[in-house]
Design a protein around this nucleic acid. Structure first.
Lengths: 139, 139
DNA sequence: CTTTGTGCTTGCAAAACGCAAGCGAATTTA
DNA sequence: TAAATTCGCTTGCGTTTTGCAAGCACAAAG
C-alpha cells in the first residue's frame, strides 16, 4: 500500500519517514508498556486515535518491520500486535523522549516514579526492559 | 498563533504535540549540526522543505521554546535561528534516532564515522556537543 | 439463530500540505 | 541614487491527509 519514499539519505529524515507523525510512536509506546495489544486496546488509549488512522499506522509500522501481527491465543476474531526487534530497539529513543518531557512538562506521578528509576541507571533499565519485551516476542 | 493543545498528559504524546511531524526535528538537526542557521539555510537542506511549512514550524518551535530568533551580526535583512537549552536537550534523543537508523538503514559514510565516535562513549560525545552548542547560544 | 465483540473499511467535511508566485524591507550593484 | 537582487516570509490554490461517524464482515457468545 503506502511504500516508503525517502526524502533524503539523512538518518533522521529516514526515521521520520517511518514514524515521524503524531500517532506512530504512541502505538509503539503502548506496545512497550503493555507488551502486546489488540486493535481495541490501542483505541482505548487516552489520545483517542481514529480507527482509520490506527489501521493505516499499524500497516505502515508492520510494512516497515517495527511491529508484527499474531493470532490471538483466545480467539480468532482478535489480533495481537507486538514489537519486533526493530521496534524494541526504539526503546532508548522512547526513554530519551520521556526524560526530555520530564524536564519540561508536568508528568503524571506514576510516570515520574518510573523515570526516577530510569535516572538511577539508564543502561540497566533499558537492558532489563528490552529483555522483558524480547521474552514476549516469541509467545 | 497556533498554540499547543495537549492530547493527553502522556510525556510521549506531549512531546509529539510539539515536534511530532515530518519536519520539526529536521530543523533541530540542522541547528545541531550547523549550530545556527538562517531561513535560507534551512531551505538549502536536502529534504527541500516548502517555505510556508518552514515558517510555520519555526514559529511553532519558537513558541514552544525550542529555538530562538536573533539578529544576524552581518545584516539586518537576515535572521539567525538558534537552539535554546530546551532545544539542546533534544540532543540525546537525536543521537538515539541516529543510532537506531544506523542499525536499520544504509547511512552516508560521513555520518557513520561520526556515529562510530558516538558509540565509543555516548555520554562523553553528548556532553561535548552540548557544551559546543551552549557556547554558541550566547553569541 | 440472534446478538455482541472485534478489526477493520468507507464517505465526507475540515485541516494540513506542497508548490508557485508575490511582496516589503534591506542590501548590493550599476 | 536608481535599479536589481537578496532575504524572510505570506498568499492562493489544488492535492493529500486527518478526524469523525457510520457501516460491514467475521467470530464468538447467548
Amino acid at each position: 500500500m503506502e511504500n516508503l519514499k525517502k526524502r533524503s539519505e539523512c538518518p533522521i529524515s529516514s526515521s521520520l519517514d517511518i514514524w515521524g507523525d503524531k500517532w506512530s510512536l504512541l502505538i509503539v509506546r503502548d506496545l512497550m508498556f503493555a507488551k502486546q495489544c489488540t486493535y481495541g486496546d490501542f483505541l482505548k488509549s487516552d489520545e483517542k486515535i481514529a480507527t482509520n488512522i490506527l489501521a493505516s499506522r499499524l500497516l505502515m509500522l508492520e510494512e516497515n518491520g517495527v511491529i508484527t501481527k499474531q493470532d490471538h491465543p483466545d480467539s480468532k476474531a482478535k489480533v495481537l500486535y507486538k514489537l519486533t526487534q526493530k521496534g524494541i530497539d526504539l526503546l532508548p529513543l522512547m526513554i530519551e523522549i520521556n526524560l526530555w518531557a520530564d524536564k519540561y512538562f508536568c508528568l503524571p506521578t506514576e510516570r515520574r516514579e518510573i523515570l526516577e528509576e530510569v535516572k538511577k541507571d539508564k543502561e540497566a533499565f533499558i537492558r532489563a526492559k528490552a529483555v522483558e519485551l524480547l521474552e514476549q516476542m516469541g509467545n
